[in-house]
Simulated scan of single mutants.
Amino acid sequence: MDEAFSVDDLIACYARGVFPMADAREDESVFLIDPERRGVLPLGGLHIPKRLARTVRNGPYEVRVDTAFEAVIEACATPRPGRAETWINHPIQRLYGQLYARGLAHSVETWLGDELVGGLYGVSLGGAFFGESMFSTARDASKVALVHLVARLLAGGYQLLDTQFLTDHLAQFGVTEISRADYRRRLTKALAVEGDFYGLAGGATGTDCLQAISQAS
């Protein structure tokens, strides 16, 4: 990818259905991905296991939004047991920081007291949200963030939650795989909608989120 690749170029890539990746954290090169099959999570089809629902409702975590974006992406880029390498290199991290500064990237964070123990981040364009990465250092912390994200997208009128790929981990929540052509049709419709990432009432609890998701299913 050209060194002059800018945040505006990145926005244009998402709008046409492609996204950036890198081979390794310390590899400065970035390439674009346009998968033949795309992972999506139907916003009305999130599957929440009973134990996770109990944690969302009664667990020890506090969920915050956009208070520690840089810390979340840094944690997502940090190697962990079972994941020795990451696709988030330094140029990609800088670009997402610029998207965040424009209000086009967001983080959903799971806190245990004053410690950030899980979360996710992604890109928001129109009524589409592109989930990029998540991390967890405490049980179910990233899963709790996902539940809160889906409730927030439903409240904000979003039409599409793009997970990029279908993995065994994501499949348990209802993520499915669709063709490139189907994805682009859905993306076009979603981009015509003006989603409101802050449409969820301030102070919404885990119970509020579960109710919003239940009503949409």
Rank of each mutant, 00 (worst) to 15 (best):
L187Q: 11
A181M: 07
V18K: 01
L160Q: 03
G103V: 08
I178F: 05
G126I: 10
P35S: 09
M1W: 13
L153Y: 07
I213C: 07
R54L: 10
R180H: 14
Y61H: 03
Y198E: 02
L170F: 12
R83Q: 14
S6Y: 13
L200Y: 05
A77Y: 11
Q93W: 14
C209F: 11
P35V: 15
A75S: 15
A212N: 01
A171W: 11
V147N: 03
G174M: 07
T67M: 06
L154E: 00
E115P: 01
Y198W: 10
T110I: 07
V30L: 06
A181Q: 12
L125C: 03
F129H: 00
R94F: 14
L210V: 06
F165D: 06
Q215Y: 09
A68T: 07
Y14G: 01
P60F: 07
V18C: 14
V18S: 10
R185I: 02
Y121G: 01
R102P: 00
G45W: 13
Q211K: 13
E28M: 06
G118F: 13
M134E: 04
F19T: 02
L166H: 12
A151P: 00
R186I: 05
F5E: 00
S142T: 12
T207S: 10
Y121R: 02
G118N: 06
R139H: 14
L46S: 08
R80I: 05
Y198T: 05
A22Y: 11
F165E: 08
I178E: 04
E194R: 14
T55P: 00
A181P: 00
L99G: 01
I48V: 15
L210K: 04
P20D: 04
V117Y: 13
A71I: 04
G122L: 07
P60A: 12
E70G: 12
T67C: 11
G206A: 09
D2G: 08
E70A: 15
P42C: 12
A216H: 15
S124E: 05
A138E: 14
F130Q: 02
Y121M: 01
R186V: 01
G45I: 07
R51E: 09
N89T: 06
A84P: 00
V123R: 03
L112F: 13
M21S: 04
L52M: 07
M21A: 12
R139L: 13
Y61W: 14
L187D: 03
G126E: 12
R25I: 15
T67G: 04
L166F: 13
E109R: 08
L52I: 06
A171K: 14
R152W: 11
Q211D: 13
G195M: 07
L200K: 02
V175E: 09
V40A: 08
P49Q: 05
P20G: 02
L43V: 03
L52D: 08
Q93L: 10
R180V: 05
G122W: 12
F197R: 13
I178V: 15
F130G: 01
D162R: 11
S217G: 15
V40G: 03
Y183H: 13
G126R: 08
A128G: 02
L154K: 01
L10A: 04
R16H: 08
L146G: 02
